[in-house]
Design a protein around this nucleic acid. Structure first.
Length: 594
DNA sequence: CTAGGGTTAG
C-alpha cells in the first residue's frame, strides 16, 4: 500500500517539476488506479489528459475504462469507449468485462454480438469473460463457436467453459472440457475440484487432487479450499478432510482465509464441532464468511447458546452481517426451541440491519414455529409473507403436523405438497406416517395406493459408520454384514440391559399396522441401532462413535441411544438429515427438542 | 491495455 502511495506522490512531483509526462507514464499510473480503485485520482488524470492534449491512445483510454468499470461508473466508461476510433479487440473486451462486473448482462452480450458483427474476432480473453455471463449465454453454444478457434485448449478459456458447465450442474460435460485443456494451470485444476465439490463427489475431487500432485503442480489456497469443501460432502469420510487439513499446514496455506473457513465448515458438517471451533479460534483475521461458518456450525449442532455468543462477538467487533448470519442464528434458535429469540433475530435483521428477508428467512421462521408446535403461527407467516409457499415450507408444516398430531392441517399441507411435487416420496411418506401414528389405517392405505399408482418409490432409510477409514452402512433389519450374527447378539444383550435400566419401547414410532410384539422387533432393528451395535463391537471401549443417517432419528431410537451412551460409557454423535445429536451420559445435546 | 478458479444457509 505504501509503495502505491509513493508512486502517486512521485507522479505528482513529476507534474510540479515539469518533467515530461509521457504516454507510458500515464498508462502506468492509470493501471495503478485501476488496481487500487483510485477513482478520484483517475478522474484527475482524465482531465489532465483532456487539457494537455496528450494523445488519447488506446492504452490510456482502456486503462481509464477499466478504472471506471471497477468503480461502478459505467457511464464514464462507456463515454470513453464510444469516443475511441479503430478499436481493436482489447477495448471491446475490457468494456464487455466492465458490464459483466457491474451485473449488466444484457449490455455485455449486446456488445459481444455487435463486436462479432463488425468482424472483430474475439480472442481467448473475450471468450473467458463472456462465459461468466452464464445466465444469458449457453455454454453449449459458445463451446461450438470456441471449438472452431481451438481456444478451448487454452487453460483460461477451458476453465471458464468448464466452470459454466459446473454452474449448470453438468459436471460430466465440465470434466470433458477439462481433459481437453493442453496445459492445465492451477486455476484449471482448482476449478475442476470446485466442480466435484459442488456435486458432492468427494472421490472425483480426490482423484483430481492426486493427479495434480503427481504432475508436480503446486496447490494454492483456492485448490485447498475447493478440495476441503469437497470433503464436507455428506458421504465423505471424516479422515479425508483431516488429511487435506494436514497437507494445507505442510504447504503453509492453512491460514489463508478461504482455507480456514472451508475447514470450519468441513469439520462442522462432519460432526466435529470442536475441531471446527479450534480452527475458528486460530484464525488471525476473519471475514463475514468465517463468522457465518462458525454460527451455522453451532446451529447445525444445536448449540444455540454458542451460536448466540459468536453473534455477540461479531457485534462487538462491528462486523457487518448479512442474511446468512441471520439464517444461522434463527436456525440455532429453532434447534434449541428458543421461539421468541428466533423471532427477535428476524425483527432485528429487518429493523436494525435493513436486510430484506428472503424466502429462506421465512422458511426459517416457519420451521421455528412448526417445531415448537405453534402451527397457527406458522400458517400466519405463510399467509402474510410476500412469497408463495414452496414445497419446502409445506413439508415443514406437514412434518410438524405429524409430530403434533394436527390431522386437518396436515391433510391440507400434504395435498399442497403432493400437488407441487407429485413424484417426491417425502410427501406421501409423511402423510401416511401421520395417519399411521393417529391410527387412521384407512387414510393411510389410500395414500399408499396413490403412491403405488403414481409409481413413487420410498427412499430407504439407512445409517452408516466409519471405522478405520472404512464406511459400513446398514439398512433396517439388515443381515448382510459379515459380522451380522455378532451384531444381532450385541443388540439382544443391549436390549436386556436397556430393560434393566427401565426402558419401555415406544411403539408409536412404528408405522406399520402390526401387533405390539412385532413392533418392538422392528424398532430394535432400526438401521442406526445396527450401526451403533457394530461400532461398539468394532472399536475399543471409550472411543466415541459417529453415526450418519439419511432420514431423521425416530423418538424411540433417540431414547435408546441416550441410554446406550450411559450403559456403554460412550459418547455417540448421530447426524440425521436435519442436525447433529450429541449423546453423552444419558443426555442429548438437543435436549430432546428436535 | 482485456481473462478464467474458492468459502457461509436450506
Amino acid at each position: 500500500m505504501a509503495l502505491i502511495w509513493n508512486s502517486f506522490k512521485m507522479f505528482h512531483r513529476m507534474g510540479f517539476d515539469g518533467a515530461k509526462l509521457t504516454q507510458s507514464t500515464y498508462t502506468s499510473v492509470i493501471k495503478l488506479c485501476a488496481n487500487t480503485k483510485e477513482l478520484e485520482f483517475a478522474k484527475q488524470i482524465h482531465c489532465q489528459v483532456l487539457k494537455n492534449g496528450i494523445g488519447f491512445d488506446h492504452n490510456i483510454s482502456t486503462g481509464l475504462m477499466v478504472t471506471y468499470s471497477k468503480c461502478n461508473e459505467m457511464d464514464n466508461a462507456s463515454k470513453i469507449f464510444s469516443m475511441m476510433h479503430d478499436k481493436n479487440v482489447v477495448p471491446w473486451t475490457a468494456m464487455i468485462a466492465g458490464y459483466l462486473q457491474n451485473g449488466k448482462m444484457d449490455q455485455a452480450v449486446n456488445l459481444f454480438t455487435q463486436m462479432n458483427k463488425e468482424g472483430l474476432r474475439p480472442n481467448n480473453f473475450t471468450y473467458s469473460i463472456i462465459l461468466t455471463a452464464n445466465s444469458i449465454v449457453s455454454p453449449f453454444q459458445v463451446h461450438a463457436q470456441i471449438i472452431k478457434t481451438n481456444y478451448d485448449r487454452y487453460s483460461s478459456v477451458g476453465t471458464a467453459l468448464l466452470d459454466a458447465f459446473v454452474k449448470l450442474g453438468n459436471v460430466n460435460e465440465a470434466a470433458k472440457v477439462f481433459e481437453l485443456i493442453d496445459e492445465k494451470d492451477i486455476v484449471a485444476w482448482s476449478a475442476m475440484l470446485a466442480g466435484y465439490a459442488q456435486v458432492g463427489d468427494t472421490e472425483g475431487a480426490v482423484r483430481i487432487f492426486r493427479r495434480l500432485a503427481a504432475e508436480g503442480v503446486k496447490p494454492n489456497e483456492f485448490t485447498f479450499s475447493s478440495v476441503i469443501n469437497a470433503c464436507a460432502a455428506s458421504a465423505a469420510a471424516v479422515e479425508q478432510g483431516k488429511q487435506f487439513h494436514a497437507f494445507s499446514i505442510k504447504s503453509r496455506l492453512n491460514n489463508a482465509l478461504c482455507v480456514s473457513s472451508a475447514l470450519v465448515t468441513m469439520y462442522a458438517r462432519k460432526g466435529n464441532i470442536e475441531s471446527a471451533n479450534e480452527v475458528f479460534k486460530r484464525q488471525g483475521e476473519r471475514d463475514l464468511v468465517s463468522w457465518n461458518s462458525m454460527i451455522s456450525g453451532y446451529a447445525q449442532h444445536g448449540h444455540g447458546k454458542k451460536a448466540h455468543e459468536v453473534f455477540r462477538e461479531m457485534q462487538r467487533n462491528n462486523m457487518e452481517m448479512d442474511g446468512i448470519t441471520f439464517i444461522g442464528v434463527i436456525t440455532a434458535c429453532t434447534h434449541t426451541g428458543l421461539v421468541d429469540e428466533g423471532q427477535q433475530y428476524f425483527d432485528i435483521m429487518v429493523k436494525d440491519h435493513h436486510i430484506n428477508p428472503t424466502m429462506e428467512h421465512y422458511s426459517c421462521l416457519i420451521d421455528l414455529y412448526s417445531r415448537a408446535g405453534m402451527l397457527e403461527k406458522a400458517m400466519d407467516i405463510i399467509n402474510m409473507m410476500p412469497f408463495a409457499a414452496g414445497a419446502t415450507m409445506w413439508r415443514t408444516i406437514l412434518a410438524a403436523c405429524r409430530v403434533h398430531r394436527n390431522l386437518d392441517l396436515g391433510k391440507q399441507a400434504g395435498e399442497k405438497l403432493i400437488s407441487l411435487q407429485p413424484q417426491d416420496s417425502a410427501a406421501y411418506v409423511l402423510l401416511s406416517n401421520m395417519y399411521a401414528a393417529a391410527g387412521h389405517w384407512q387414510d393411510r392405505a389410500e395414500v399408499r395406493k396413490l403412491m403405488d399408482e403414481r409409481n413413487v418409490k420410498k427412499e430407504a432409510g439407512y445409517s452408516w459408520i466409519e471405522v478405520k477409514n472404512k464406511t459400513y452402512s446398514f439398512l433396517a433389519g439388515d443381515r448382510s454384514h459379515p459380522l451380522s450374527v455378532r451384531i444381532y447378539s450385541k443388540l439382544e444383550d443391549l436390549s436386556t440391559r436397556l430393560r434393566d435400566a427401565g426402558y419401555q419401547p415406544d411403539t408409536n414410532h412404528v408405522l406399520q399396522d402390526v401387533d405390539d410384539e412385532h413392533k418392538e422387533a422392528i424398532l430394535s432393528q432400526h438401521s442406526e441401532r445396527l450401526a451403533i451395535a457394530f461400532g461398539l463391537l468394532a472399536t475399543p471401549a471409550g472411543v466415541p462413535l459417529q453415526i450418519f443417517k439419511n432420514l431423521r432419528v425416530c423418538g424411540d431410537c433417540h431414547t435408546v441411544i441416550k441410554l446406550i451412551s450411559t450403559i456403554e460409557k460412550r459418547d455417540i454423535v448421530v447426524r440425521d438429515t436435519n442436525r447433529f445429536h450429541h449423546f453423552k451420559e444419558g443426555l442429548c445435546s438437543c435436549g430432546d427438542y428436535w
